[in-house]
């Protein structure tokens, strides 16, 4: 398991865990957390491809291109599956 933010451009990985921020814990006020990550298709089990690893990061998930903060990308853990 490595953080998503460490993938090189072109590499792919499968999301294994999303380390939610403390505000995202069950019962917490979800308005303040990053659960939109999941609504936008970044979920455990999804294959993501790194398109542009800078600041911010550009990912491809299914057919969407999603831009995320580096900080957020470091909280998403993946298993590398190569190119």
């Amino acid at each position: 398991m490595v953080p998503l933010g460490l993938l090189n451009p072109g590499e792919q990985g499968v999301i294994t865990a999303i380390r939610l921020t403390p505000t995202c814990a069950p019962g917490a006020d979800r308005q303040k957390c990053d659960c939109r990550v999941e609504d936008m298709g970044l979920r455990v089990g999804k294959t993501v491809q790194m398109l542009n690893n800078g600041s911010p990061i550009l990912l491809k998930v299914d057919e969407s291109r999603i831009a995320v903060d580096r900080g957020l990308a470091m909280k998403i853990m993946i298993k590398e599956v190569g190119r």
């Binding site: 921020t21 990053d34 939109r36 990550v37 936008m40 970044l42 911010p56 550009l58 969407s64 291109r65 999603i66 831009a67 995320v68 903060d69 900080g71 957020l72």
Partner: peptide
């Protein structure tokens, strides 16, 4: 805070 956004085709 964190940031997430879709880039449409």
């Amino acid at each position: 805070p964190m940031f997430i956004m879709e880039l449409p085709p």
